[in-house]
Simulated assay, not measured.
Amino acid sequence: MVTTVNINKLPELNTLGVSLVRIDYAPYGLNPPHTHPRASEVLVVLARHSLCEFVTSNPLDPSRKNKLFTKYLYLGDVFVFPQGLIHFQFNVGHTNAIASLSSQNAGVITIANEVFGSDPPINQAVLTKTFLVENIVMDYLQAQFWWNID
């Protein structure tokens, strides 16, 4: 469960440059790959441990690959996700966490929802060429239930 406190729920945050999110994970729960286009995120783990990762994007040197940063976090640990980078959290125990964002309206883009759950769907030729898979795989992915997180 993700509970947000941003200007949509607390207008008094406007112009303060901060919002908060409480994330309550079920065992093996996932906050799926997403990005915040207008904010960096600071995550504080309140119980047990969690796996956190983010991926750099579009390195200046074309010979370099995007780098994956991985960290297991334990009670009291803090992790920073840079603004705009794809990241996720995966509960490898039973974890509560609080995230702080450097914007009163950080925005959230859940990658799979945007790519596979659009209405109308993204042109299948674009997706099959992008992900290097056949039409049947895209048919399957686009038929899944995709949800929005607040």
Rank of each mutant, 00 (worst) to 15 (best):
E53K: 13
L51H: 13
R38W: 06
R48F: 07
H49F: 12
A26C: 11
R48K: 15
D24A: 10
G29V: 04
S19H: 02
Y25Q: 03
S57Q: 15
R22Y: 11
V55A: 11
V45F: 00
Y28W: 15
L30H: 09
G29K: 03
S57N: 14
V55Y: 07
L43C: 03
H36Y: 09
L46V: 01
S50D: 07
S57L: 11
P37V: 06
G29R: 05
A39S: 12
S50G: 14
P27F: 08
A47V: 04
T56V: 08
N31P: 03
V18I: 15
L43F: 05
V45E: 00
V18K: 03
V21T: 11
N58T: 15
R48Q: 13
V18M: 11
V44N: 02
V44A: 06
T56Q: 03
Y25F: 15
Y25S: 02
E53W: 05
L46H: 02
P33Y: 06
A47I: 02
S40F: 04
P33C: 10
L51R: 11
L20T: 06
L30Q: 08
T56A: 05
P27D: 12
P32E: 07
A39F: 03
L51C: 09
R22F: 10
V18S: 07
T56P: 01
A47K: 11
R22H: 12
C52R: 02
L43E: 00
V44P: 00
V44R: 01
P32M: 09
H34M: 08
P33M: 08
N58Y: 13
H49M: 11
D24M: 08
V21A: 10
E53M: 14
T35Q: 08
V45D: 00
D24R: 11
L20M: 15
G29S: 05
L46P: 00
H34D: 06
Y28M: 14
P33N: 12
P32Q: 06
V44T: 11
P27H: 12
V55D: 06
S19W: 00
V21N: 02
